[in-house]
Write a protein that binds this DNA or RNA. Structure first.
Length: 431
RNA sequence: GGAGAGAUGGCCGAGCUGGUCGAAGGCGCUCCCCUGCUAAGGGAGUAUGGGGUCAAAAGCUCCAUCGAGGGUUCGAAUCCCUCUCUCUCCGCCA
């Protein structure tokens, strides 16, 4: 949430910054709601003060055994007036909250201008796309050839945008998860957490998925719960309604979880293969830090995600998202894009964002730092990495002319020493 | 699923026969004193959010908040109702 004080006092300033994202702030709405709020609050509080003073006077009088009938006289009208004033205040506040909760975050000053992905800026690049002496197959062809990727089975069990993995591919996915968790816990100083995969509405509000993106969430019929779209939601919500001591920060969490997305707005996009699924595995990095740390930590966290790609020797580039291409809650975002020979292009495999105090304000997540008052913390997260897409990248980058797939050096230990996946008929795991 | 107990400030914990209770006491924290150092000791302060006043800060002042929401009442942490969560016992179960 945008700082309501800033919004009230400098609506034009906020409007200018939001315009960079292509978001038109209704400044008149801000002004009129604020005027109405101020009047309603003054009125309601004056009436409450009068009621409190009267009640105290009655209490004092009674304690001294005095007659209080005079003080008690003519209360109904004032009670009605107070009730009406409180109702008006409540209505204005509800309208304000509803309005403010749908405003996206203000982009950081160094976020590139632009309104679409075409305006994103390449920051750096690692590795070079492999020169294939044979026509590169995509991951679906490779996976099916290996006998371990079965989209038809998933479609039968559930529907489209799901997958069944078998044998070597199932193990390769598990190896990737294990490798990422070990890297981040042992070398990057993150604490592994296990969290619920169903969350309540408050948690989705806290990280910014609600109220604006309700149609993208999977709900649970009969329960007020939602399947998590990313581990960011439960993990960041660990900080909700909490006041941290300075010594407790930074909090660095790594969490593997499945992610569930309705992909409501993506009908017809990426319909082939594992790129866009309703369910996928992800290893997520989350940090809760003091405000002055977040810009530095954002670079650091992005680097932590990059190391995964470097160790897997997958070519990638780092893109600074332009203001118009960033997510709702982000102040600044770097996307990591991995090269996929099957489609001959770079594809997003990680998104690393600094949210500033935007999520913290919604979460009421604070820390005692320099001053006497608790301050809002800053939150960050990034995929480290999206496992499904990493699996795609490994298959496509490590294929040979015969359709076999080498195991990246970093994963051999996690594959029980196996160095290659070879085509085989669909079957159970070999003995 | 059945029966019972509970939810209070950063933490623990009184208050719960309704009236200066935003709330005793302790711990922690901050500042000061004492102390050769350390330990111990003494004093003061210390909830959060919002409004008004002010050029601004400080200060002053008002409002809200004792799990959440509703009700009773001139007045609710205290009484009533609903819900949520935690704990104990029983049952069931991976």
């Amino acid at each position: 949430m945008i700082d309501p004080k800033l919004l009230r006092t400098e609506p034009d300033h906020v409007a200018r910054h939001l315009a960079r994202r292509g978001f038109i702030l209704n400044v008149d709405m801000v002004r009129s709601l604020e005027a109405r709020r101020k009047a309603a609050q003054k009125d309601a509080e004056a009436r409450q003060a009068a009621r409190n003073a009267r009640a105290k006077a009655i209490g004092r009088a009674k304690a001294q055994g005095e007659d209080v009938t005079a003080l008690m006289a003519g209360q109904e009208e004032e009670a009605r007036g107070l009730a009406a004033a409180e109702a008006e205040l409540g209505a204005v506040q509800a309208a304000w909250d509803e309005f403010v909760s749908t405003l996206p975050n203000i982009p950081a000053p160094d976020v590139p201008d632009g309104l679409s992905a075409a305006d994103n800026v390449e920051v750096r690049r690692f590795g070079t796309p492999p020169q294939c002496p044979f026509p590169a197959r995509d991951h679906v062809a490779l996976g099916e050839n290996l006998g371990g990727l079965d989209l038809a089975a998933a479609a039968k069990i559930t529907g489209s945008r799901f997958v069944v993995l078998r044998a070597g591919l199932a193990r390769l996915q598990r190896a990737l998860i294990q490798f990422m968790l070990d890297l981040h816990t042992k070398e990057h100083g993150y604490t592994e957490v296990y969290v619920p995969y169903l969350v309540n509405g408050e948690s989705l509000y806290g990280t910014g998925q609600l109220p604006k993106f309700a149609e993208e969430q999977f709900g649970i019929a009969g329960f007020p719960y939602f399947l998590i779209p990313t581990a960011e939601v439960p993990v960041t919500n660990l900080a909700r309604d909490t006041i941290f001591a300075r010594s407790e920060l930074p909090l660095r969490y790594v969490c593997h979880s499945p992610c569930f997305r309705s992909e409501a707005g993506a009908a017809g996009r990426d319909t082939r293969g594992l790129i866009r699924q309703h369910q996928f595995e992800k290893v997520e990095l989350v940090q809760i830090v003091a405000p002055e740390e977040s810009v530095r930590v954002h670079e650091e966290l992005t680097h932590h995600a990059e190391v995964v790609l470097q160790r897997l020797e997958l070519p990638y580039r780092v893109m600074a998202l332009c203001a118009g291409d960033m997510g709702f809650a982000a102040a600044k975002t770097y996307d990591l894009e991995v090269y996929l020979p099957g489609s001959g292009c770079y594809r997003e495999i990680s998104s690393c964002s600094n949210f500033g105090d935007f999520q913290a304000r919604r979460l009421n997540a604070r820390a005692r730092l320099a001053g006497p008052k608790p301050e809002l913390v800053h939150t960050l997260n990034g995929s480290g990495l999206a496992v499904g897409r990493t699996l795609v990248a490994v298959l496509e980058n490590y294929q040979d002319a015969d359709g076999r797939v080498r195991i990246p050096e970093a994963l051999v230990g996690y594959m029980g020493g196996e160095t290659v996946l070879s085509p085989q008929a669909r079957q159970s795991t070999p003995p």
